[in-house]
Structure formats: structure tokens, C-alpha cells
Amino acid sequence: MSVQIVVNGKPMEVEPGTTVDGLLTLLNVKREYTAVAVNREVTPKSTYGSVTLSEGDKVEIVRPMGGGAS
């Protein structure tokens, strides 16, 4: 059984017990200047290894991008 989650708006399947840290490694995302929110709540970097993703979780992974104003 895999766990269905949504990452940056796209559906994805991960192994049960996958942590935020595991997801970032899986997706090859650099940790520096990156932040993660799970179900609208910011996940502190210190908890990446302990937060396990559950069925239906919505994950946002963001970083700085070019921009001035809206």
C-alpha cells in the first residue's frame, strides 16, 4: 500500500512512513533556502526527519524566485 499525497499541486505516491526529509531527498530538492508546508502549516526544518506524510496530505515546497511585486 502506498500513500497518496499532493506535492506542489501534483498527485504523487510515496511509501508508507515517508518523512518530509525522505520526500525532499526523493525529489532531489536542496534544503538551502527551501521551505515546506504540509496542509497549510509550515514544517520547521528541525522536524523534517520526524514528520511522516499521511494519506491526502497537501505538501508545498517553495523557494525564492525572481520577482518584484505581484
Binding site: G9, L27, V29, E32, E60, R63, P64
Partner: peptide, 18 residues
């Protein structure tokens, strides 16, 4: 310098503005 906050493109191999 001001920067926007946006979704990472996945997989996260792209270059960073930083």
C-alpha cells in the same frame, strides 16, 4: 533585493536565483 516565494519546480534540479 526583493524576491518572490514560489513552488520549487520538481524534481528540484533547476538553477536557483540565489
Amino acid at each position: 533585493v526583493t524576491v518572490a516565494v514560489r513552488r520549487v519546480s520538481l524534481p528540484g534540479t533547476g538553477e536557483s536565483i540565489l
